[in-house]
Amino acid sequence: MIRITHLEKVYRTDEVETVALNKLTIEVKEGEFVAIMGPSGCGKSTLLNILGLLDDPDSGSFMFNGIEVAKFNERKRADLRKRNIGFVFQSFNLIDELTVFENVELPLIYTGVKAAERKKRVEAVLDKMQIMHRRNHYPQQLSGGQQQRVAVARAVVNNPKLILADEPTGNLDSSNGNEVMQLLTDLNEQGTTIIMVTHSEHDARYSHRIIRMLDGQTVLENIMV
């Protein structure tokens, strides 16, 4: 599903040049659950951003479902992103001015789904995430675990092929964290590819494979049994 080859990304300021990704090569197959680990500054977030088509590499190749997307422009990336990729963030990133229902509905609006169909699909996914009773609440009225469930609901409502999770349990206590990890596992079992950046060895154990990074390169891959 994803094949990146010799990917490079360098951040430059006036005085400092930071190599975030150094000729990185990774492959992720459809249906996999991959965890990316490594110390701060190793390039894992940069990698996730590029995988999520939020950022573009300086050089190298990025094949997504057999299409070269490394040189896509903003508009093409947005199109591809909204149809194929869902995001889960450490800090949930829900829109404070929108209700739970409206937050989850947002991706459907941008993919042009009709209102009636939107209602059906949002309700279905809220049900699945067991957050239906909170549909008319605003994010501030929810606990962290509930907010992250809403964020997961938003990520999956469009039935993306790929979910990118950036430390999804980072802001949660262990029981809420486990709940979210179980949700991701369930989704993976239903066929969604998941790539997750994490600092937690515990969370990483939910995945099939751990990619460990250092200084913009992979240093080790563990296959989980």
């Binding site: 939020l54 992103r81 909204k82 990133n93 829109i95 404070d96 947002l106 991706p107 941008y110």
Partner: peptide, 16 residues
């Protein structure tokens, strides 16, 4: 800014 970011992530184009 956060709202803009989220909207872009879930597929909003600049025009919208």
């Amino acid at each position: 800014a956060k709202e803009v970011g989220i909207r872009k992530v879930v597929g909003a184009r600049k025009k919208s």
